[in-house]
C-alpha cells in the first residue's frame, strides 16, 4: 500500500460543508470581535473608532495580569500534579484480562461526566457541613472551608481538576506503554535491569510522544477552564479562582464592556493559536515517528 495520498483537488467539494459551517460559527464571530476591539460602542448607532486603545488598556490591566498569573500558576500546578500521577497510574494499571478492562472503565469514568456535574459533585463533596471531604478535613482539625477561604478554594479547584483529568494522562500513557513489545522487557530482565532502569530507558522513551501530547492538551484545556470552577466557586471567594475565561465572561456579559472584552478575547485567541500550533506540529511528529517505528519492526 502506498502511503502517499493521491492529489485530488475535487476533494475540496467534500470539505466545503465543514468550511461553510465553521466559517459561519467561527470566522464571522472572529471578524466581529476584531471590529469590536477597535471601537467604543455606546449603542449600535453611536460608536467611535478608538484604534488600539483597548489593546493598550488590556495589556496594562492589572486585574487581567493577575487573572493571567492565576491562570498560569493553576495550569502549571495542574501539570505538575497530573503528569506524574497519570504516569504512575498508567504503570500500575493491569495489562491484560478482565481486570484491565474493569480498571480502564473505572479510570475513564470521571472523563465522561459532564463538566458542570463535576462541579456539582465537588460542590457537594467539599462542603464542610454536608460533604464527606469537608467533614473529614474538619474532623482532622483543619478549618476547611472552600467558600470562604481563598487558598482552600484554589486547592479544591485543583483537586477537582486532578480528579477529573488525570485519567486522560493515564489513558494516553497506557496506550503508549501497550505499544512496547514484550521482547524489550525480556531483554531487560536478562540484563538484570532495575525497575527504575526499565522505566527510564524503555518505558519513558516510548511514552515521550504521547506524554508531550498529554502535557499540551492538559495545558490548553486547563487554560480555558470555565465550567467547573464556575459551578464550584463562581470565581470566588473574592477572585481567587477567577481564571481567564471566567474573567472574560464577567467582562463581556456582566459588565458588557464590549471593546475591552473583545480586545482581551483576541489576545486570548492569539495565545491559544500559538499553543495549538505547537501541539499540532508535535502530534504530526509523533505520528510520523510512530509510522517509521512500525516500519522498522
Amino acid at each position: 500500500m502506498s502511503t502517499i495520498k493521491p492529489v485530488n483537488q475535487k476533494a475540496w467539494w467534500l470539505v466545503l460543508p465543514v468550511v461553510v459551517c465553521v466559517a459561519f460559527s467561527a470566522v464571522l464571530p472572529l471578524m466581529t470581535v476584531v471590529n469590536y476591539s477597535l471601537q467604543d460602542i455606546i449603542s449600535p448607532e453611536r460608536r467611535v473608532f478608538v484604534g488600539t486603545e483597548w489593546f493598550a488598556a488590556a495589556m496594562r490591566d492589572e486585574e487581567l495580569h493577575s487573572a493571567l498569573w492565576r491562570q498560569l500558576t493553576f495550569s502549571l500546578a495542574v501539570l505538575t500534579v497530573e503528569i506524574p500521577l497519570g504516569i504512575m497510574l498508567a504503570l500500575s494499571m493491569p495489562a491484560k484480562g478482565w481486570k484491565a478492562s474493569a480498571v480502564l472503565v473505572v479510570v475513564a469514568l470521571s472523563l465522561l461526566i459532564p463538566w458542570n456535574v463535576v462541579g456539582t459533585i465537588w460542590q457537594i463533596f467539599g462542603r464542610a457541613d454536608i460533604g464527606l471531604l469537608g467533614a473529614m478535613l474538619q474532623k482532622m482539625g483543619f478549618d476547611y472551608n472552600y467558600t470562604g477561604n481563598a487558598t482552600h478554594a484554589w486547592l479544591t479547584v485543583l483537586v477537582m481538576d486532578v480528579w477529573h483529568w488525570t485519567p486522560l494522562v493515564a489513558l494516553l500513557c497506557y496506550a503508549g506503554l501497550r505499544s512496547i513489545p514484550d521482547a524489550y522487557y525480556q531483554a531487560a530482565r536478562i540484563d538484570g535491569a532495575s525497575r527504575f532502569a526499565v522505566f527510564r530507558y524503555i518505558q519513558l522513551p516510548k511514552m515521550r510522544g504521547v506524554l508531550m501530547i498529554a502535557v499540551l492538551l492538559r495545558f490548553m484545556d486547563s487554560f480555558m477552564i470555565y465550567t467547573e470552577p464556575f459551578v464550584l466557586t463562581g470565581g470566588g471567594p473574592g477572585n481567587a479562582t477567577t481564571f481567564l475565561s471566567e474573567y472574560l465572561t464577567q467582562k463581556a456579559v456582566g459588565q458588557f464592556d464590549v471593546g475591552p472584552a473583545a480586545a482581551f478575547s483576541l489576545i486570548y485567541f492569539l495565545i491559544i493559536l500559538l499553543l495549538c500550533f505547537i501541539l499540532y506540529n508535535w502530534m504530526q511528529r509523533v505520528g510520523t515517528a510512530d509510522k517509521e517505528g512500525a516500519g522498522h519492526e
Binding site: 502517499i4 495520498k5 493521491p6 492529489v7 485530488n8 483537488q9 475535487k10 476533494a11 475540496w12 470539505v15 465543514v18 468550511v19 465553521v22 460559527s25 467561527a26 464571522l28 464571530p29 472572529l30 466581529t32 470581535v33 469590536y36 490548553m220 487554560f223 480555558m224 470555565y226 481567564l244 475565561s245 472574560l248 465572561t249 463581556a252 456579559v253 464590549v258 472584552a261 473583545a262 478575547s265 483576541l266 486570548y268 485567541f269 491559544i272 493559536l273 499553543l275 495549538c276 500550533f277 501541539l279 499540532y280
Partner: peptide, 29 residues
C-alpha cells in the same frame, strides 16, 4: 483519502476552533 491544496492548513484551522475558549465567541454570538 486525498491530498489537496491547503489540506494541512485547513485541518489545523479546524483544530484551532476546537481549542478556542467559547468565551471568545460569546459577544458576537
Amino acid at each position: 483519502r486525498y491530498s489537496f491544496l491547503g489540506d494541512k492548513h485547513l485541518f489545523f484551522w479546524l483544530l484551532t476552533n476546537r481549542m478556542t475558549p467559547p468565551a471568545v465567541f460569546l459577544l458576537p454570538f
